[in-house]
Structure formats: structure tokens, C-alpha cells
């Protein structure tokens, strides 16, 4: 005999179902919010450790032109030499990575045969996967002696050595994003140019590259973000002399390398400790800016295409 369910139970059953759906929704929402929370916590905790520096010795201290964190007479926490160190290495690396990254992307997107593409793309992905400490080690034992010999220097640990390796590490980023940009140029542009009698290279140079330019620039900016934030390579191969110099053949010390080299030995809560957190904040703000601008450009560009 079939017993009739009271209607209330059916309602409860239905509620259970939608209740479960709701719980799942909120769990997923919570998971998705962790990224926001982590970003907030990063700013919060870097700020928290850096904060007391504002009162003593004051923010003007950070604008001084020397970085002498350990001294019996006077400790100086000027970020300027570290900042110029990062700038020199980043500019050099960018100059090196642009031709390789952009031409590589053009080749993979427009010229390579299918066979070449199946070889080239994994190679670039392998390069992206090599740990930075391994690249740094290679630079230390193989590249820096070569640089020393080639330019007749006292030491091979220079800004140029670091920049070459950093360019190498940023090339996969530049290639993959530029390639996407080049691929998203409408075929009709190319066909129109070829139909008018332009050669293949002419078409690429005068039509495809200009049309993909916003994407390519965004790719370069993201590559620069990687370069400026990279730590182990510069720590190992740029010599780490904290002085203001724009000579690529001298040793420099970047912001990232300073944190990595000094945070381990610093007294907790000291001025030096707080100054290192300021270095971290400056890095965070620079990379944040580069990223946001690049992504905005990419997004706008994708909408057009």
C-alpha cells in the first residue's frame, strides 16, 4: 500500500535541495574571495611591518642616495641606489628581450610550419619552467666568466650579466602574449595587404605588427614586471654593490636582491628591518602598476578584435 507523503515533507525535501545548493554556492564564493583576501593581507602585512618607519627615522630617510644598513657611526637607508640598480637591470633586460621575444612571436604565429611550431612552443615552455636559481647558477659558472673575458673586466658579475639572464627568463612571457595578439589580427587585414601586392614580410611589418602593437606592448610590460620582481638571478650574478651607477659593466644591487640578502640577518623590528619592508612595498606597487596597465590594454584590445 502506498502511503501518501504529507505535503510538508515534500516541501522540506525541496528546501534541503535548495539549502545544499546555497551552501555550495557560498563555499565556492568563499574560495573565490581568498584571492582578494590574500592581496589585502599582503598590502596589510607589508604595511604593518614597514609602518613605524614613518615616525622614526621618517620617510625622507628613504630618499637618500646611499644604502648603508649596517654601520657603527650612521646607518643610512636611502632606497635610491637600489632603485637605480633595479632600473638599470630592467632597462637592459627589456632592450635585450624585445627583439627576441617579438621576433620569436612573429615567427611562431606567422611563419613557422606546423612541425616547427610543435617543437618551438614546448621549448619556450621549458624555458619558462627552468627555476630561477638554476638560471642564476648557470649565469654564475658559465655566463659570467664569458662576460669577464669578452669585455676584459675585473669581474663577470655585472648588471649586463643579470640583464641577459633576466631577458631570457622574460622571453616566454613576451612570446606567448605577443603571439596571441598577433594571432588575433583579423585575416582580412593580411589578405588585403597581400592582394595589393605587398610581400609577406612587408605585410607582417606594416600591417600585422602595427595592428597587434597594443598587445605586444602589454606583453613587454608583463615581461618587465617579471624582470623587476625576479630575485635569485640578480642575487647570484649582479655582484650586489649598492651604489648609484648606470654602467652596465659595473656591479649593481637591485631591490629584490637587497631583501633576499639582508632579511635573514636583520634584527626583528629594527630600522633596517622596516626599511626592507619599504623596499618590498615599492616593488609591490611597481609590479602592481605594470600589471594593471598591461591587462587593461590587453582587455581593451581584445574587445576591438
Amino acid at each position: 500500500m502506498l502511503r501518501r507523503r504529507p505535503s510538508g515533507s515534500f516541501l522540506r525535501l525541496f528546501d534541503m535541495k535548495s539549502f545544499r545548493e546555497k551552501i555550495i554556492f557560498y563555499v565556492l564564493l568563499g574560495a573565490a574571495s581568498t584571492s582578494c583576501i590574500v592581496v589585502l593581507l599582503i598590502f596589510l602585512f607589508l604595511g604593518k611591518e614597514a609602518f613605524p618607519f614613518i615616525w622614526d627615522p621618517g620617510l625622507m630617510e628613504l630618499l637618500r642616495t646611499r644604502w648603508v644598513p649596517v654601520s657603527y657611526s650612521e646607518e643610512i637607508f636611502g632606497l635610491i641606489p637600489l632603485f637605480t640598480g633595479s632600473v638599470v637591470v630592467t632597462v637592459l633586460a627589456t632592450v635585450i628581450m624585445i627583439p627576441f621575444g617579438v621576433l620569436g612571436a612573429i615567427y611562431i604565429a606567422e611563419m613557422a610550419s606546423n612541425l616547427e611550431r610543435t617543437v618551438l612552443k614546448p621549448f619556450v615552455e621549458i624555458l619558462a619552467g627552468i627555476p630561477s636559481v638554476v638560471i642564476g647558477f648557470f649565469g654564475l659558472v658559465v655566463l659570467s666568466p664569458i662576460i669577464k673575458e669578452a669585455f676584459g673586466l675585473q669581474t663577470g658579475l655585472t648588471a649586463l650579466t643579470g640583464a641577459i639572464l633576466l631577458a631570457l627568463m622574460a622571453i616566454p612571457t613576451v612570446i606567448s602574449i605577443s603571439e596571441d595578439a598577433i594571432r588575433s589580427v583579423p585575416r582580412s587585414y593580411k589578405e588585403a595587404s597581400l592582394a595589393l601586392g605587398a610581400g609577406r614580410m612587408q605585410t607582417i611589418w606594416k600591417v600585422v605588427v602595427p595592428a597587434a602593437l597594443p598587445g605586444i606592448i602589454a606583453a613587454i610590460m608583463l615581461g618587465m614586471g617579471r624582470v623587476i620582481g625576479e630575485t635569485m638571478v640578480v642575487l647570484m650574478v649582479t655582484g650586489n654593490a649598492a651604489r648609484i651607477s648606470f654602467d652596465p659593466f659595473e656591479s649593481v644591487r637591485t631591490m629584490t636582491a637587497t631583501i633576499a640578502a639582508e632579511m635573514g640577518e636583520v634584527a626583528f623590528g629594527s630600522h633596517h628591518y622596516q626599511a626592507l619592508f619599504w623596499v618590498g612595498l615599492v616593488l609591490l606597487v611597481i609590479t602592481f602598476g605594470l600589471n594593471v596597465v598591461a591587462r587593461k590594454a590587453l582587455k581593451k584590445y581584445q574587445m576591438q578584435g
Binding site: 592581496v39 611591518e49 614586471g225 623587476i228 619592508f277 618590498g280 609591490l284 609590479t287 600589471n291
Partner: peptide
């Protein structure tokens, strides 16, 4: 959320180190 993910992807690894130390 999307902005946060992009930001997180761009944070330098040494800054993650500082964050881990602080938190």
C-alpha cells in the same frame, strides 16, 4: 576578484616571502 587574481599573479616572489614572514 579578477583584479585580485591578476595582482596576485604579478606579485614578485620575494614579496611573497616578506608576506609569509609577516603573516
Amino acid at each position: 576578484i579578477r583584479l585580485a587574481i591578476i595582482t596576485l599573479a604579478g606579485v614578485p616572489s620575494i614579496v611573497f616571502g616578506l608576506f609569509g614572514l609577516g603573516l
